[in-house]
Design a protein around this nucleic acid. Structure first.
Lengths: 217, 217, 217, 217
DNA sequence: CATGAATGAGGTTTCATTCAT
DNA sequence: AATGAATGAAACCTCATTCAT
């Protein structure tokens, strides 16, 4: 019995707790999905006890919603930045955009989060809607706007700009999904960098109005 | 232990088992996911009683695996047919393929099944692998083979054929996912028919070597 | 390990279970009240396991309501009998009635049940109402009817018959409550038999119209 | 252990403790009973915080005992007063007493408190005993004494004075219980004022020795 | 084979109580 | 003396699984 062993049984962390809980819960929910996730695991991971969760979130569902929304908010910023960051010719944007997606998404938890939202879209359709409206739609609108401008300038073939946007990013999304769903370091899904480069070339050739100028690419 | 017991990882066993169970279970699993699905619901839907399920499947997990595998088997046939059905120029295949995907997938339960596999890929990585190896990879191989042939004939630009395949079908996959996740006829996802037509044109322009055109690459 | 020890882990008692459960639950609810009662105790007392309760009653509240209603139904019969059993002069009925109450109630669980209903009347006002309408009111109506008839014959003084009924049975009810609330065999509450006899005499003297005949009592 | 520490079982200790807590707790305990009452609610109602309760009471049970005892103390005074207030003929006291009960109790929280004590009499038999010894018994003793005196004077028929006391107040107690249990102004329970008047007449006629005049009152 | 009553482990949630601040 | 975050022991309830019928 060391007299100096006066470690407190716990400390109050009112400020830090919510973030820690969200962080822990995000991990567990991504790992197991909503209904297979155990609040005991979340608590353990957050360094607290199951009962303490209920000081911050009234129910498991509340925690889940908070987790997803906080996580989505984090991505809004990245999108906001990207929106204003780039103003220029579509021919220059697309390769850069796809490369960034290839590089950035590989490490981030965005695909995992997306998978979670997809998984629970039947049980939580409102979250799927939030995810769409606040993340996906904004991203698409950015792209769609640039496409429409390029069409106005006569650089890009006519057609539904949203469809063109799908042509641009669809293959990247599909590949990210592959990497997320299939075990890591599998050779089954194409390399993201290669895909970004080669598809950028392909889709630009397909979209741009063929001028006599071969310097398009 | 008979040496000849070289059971395949994914054989068509137990085909005598009541289709109603598989049918009911597929519905429930798609609706709620694995862990939120209740065997009581499955049984009720199959017109039997929970205990009876255990005459056919030892555990809930066994049932889940069987359901997914049987469902995937169904799609193998379609792919098998498609594989041999088409032999011709890529320029003719792509529009037809995308149109078929747009038309056929809309009604089928393939997207829902895909979502289920995606959802449970962390808990059942082997099922994700099976889904990939037996469905997705075969589909991709068909396409990749045709692309490689077209490249050999000088019709298609060089580059990784698998990446080209992603350029072709990625947008369709992304759109199908949208329709699956954002329920109902929301106007948030593009019309599949329009996408198929417009993207086919785009991607073909991007992939085909322009005859007479010096801007090839 | 006796080979003959082939006792089953359980037996199916679908018919008997509900009664056994109600019986056990009545005991536990009377002992502890609704919210302090533990379903585990109920189950143990019924010789089953907690989970089994839920095959018969969906929630603790459902069980409670069933318990009270079944218990009340049991007493309806006694009342029904009493109603038709006695047709005669009030002067003869009252002593008999009070003596029966004194004798019958002492052993029965009616006072305990009444205490339970009283206890939970704030949480389950509908049960209190049921108890009143089906048990108390019927009993009162029987008495009130006889009083009114006696009044019509000029035997009993005028006045609200219901109030007269309270004059007759109120002291008995109060004494029963005393015995129920205060520990048994305490000398704090009056003896029920003595009370029945002495109060019958008192109340009849008070109610009957004084004829010149002193043989009233 | 000071020998002089002969603390009474029920002393007026801790009178310095915030009345708000007792007040709030009484309300909550009456509303929900002991085990369904939440200390959080008590604290909220007292304008403090749950933890603060423990500065004053070590456990929920301690608080409950204190609440009930303090509440009972309040009624002692009323009884004390009544005891000495009236010295006179029983025939004059009874109507006044019953009228006062009818008028006073309707507003007071005595019936609610009684119901609480009744409810928890199984869990807290000592409180039921305290309630009886200090409130009920004193009230009864007052009445019993007067009855005995009246019997000595030949005004009241012989018989157990306690039983006579029950004859007098039993109907009032029963009616108060009715009003307490069957909430709101339901027409199921008789009007207290009518009952007091009519029963006083009845019981006095029943108790008083008929002087030459049979129409006693 | 089929049934469905019964099980029992485990999950979410509540809340009296403790204790660092 | 007061606070309220944190605890932890249940409590209610669910449901995959077993097994007597």
């Amino acid at each position: 019995m060391d007299v100096t062993d006066n470690k407190p049984k716990w400390s109050r962390r009112k400020e830090a707790r919510p973030t820690e809980i969200i962080e822990a819960a995000l991990h567990v929910f991504i790992e197991h999905g909503f209904s297979a996730a155990k609040l005991d695991d979340v608590a353990k991971r957050a360094g607290i006890v199951k009962g303490t969760l209920y000081r911050y979130y009234d129910t498991k569902e509340d925690l889940f919603r908070a987790v997803v929304q906080v996580a989505l908010e984090g991505h809004l910023q990245g999108i906001e930045q990207a929106t204003t960051a780039f103003r220029g010719a579509l021919g220059e944007l697309v390769p850069v955009l796809l490369r960034r997606v290839a590089e950035g998404m590989g490490e981030s938890r965005v695909p995992a989060l997306a998978r979670l939202v997809i998984s629970e879209s039947r049980s939580f359709p409102d979250l799927a809607r939030i995810w769409h409206d606040n993340v996906v739609a904004k991203m698409l609108m950015l792209l769609t706007g640039l496409i429409a401008e390029a069409q106005a300038r006569g650089e890009v073939r006519p057609g539904d700009p949203t469809v063109h946007a799908f042509s641009i990013i669809g293959p990247m999304v599909m590949a990210l999904l592959f990497h997320e769903v299939l075990d890591t370091d599998s050779n089954h899904a194409p390399d993201l960098g290669t895909l970004a480069r080669q598809h950028a070339e392909t889709v630009l050739r397909g979209l741009m109005v063929a001028s006599g100028d071969p310097s398009v690419l």
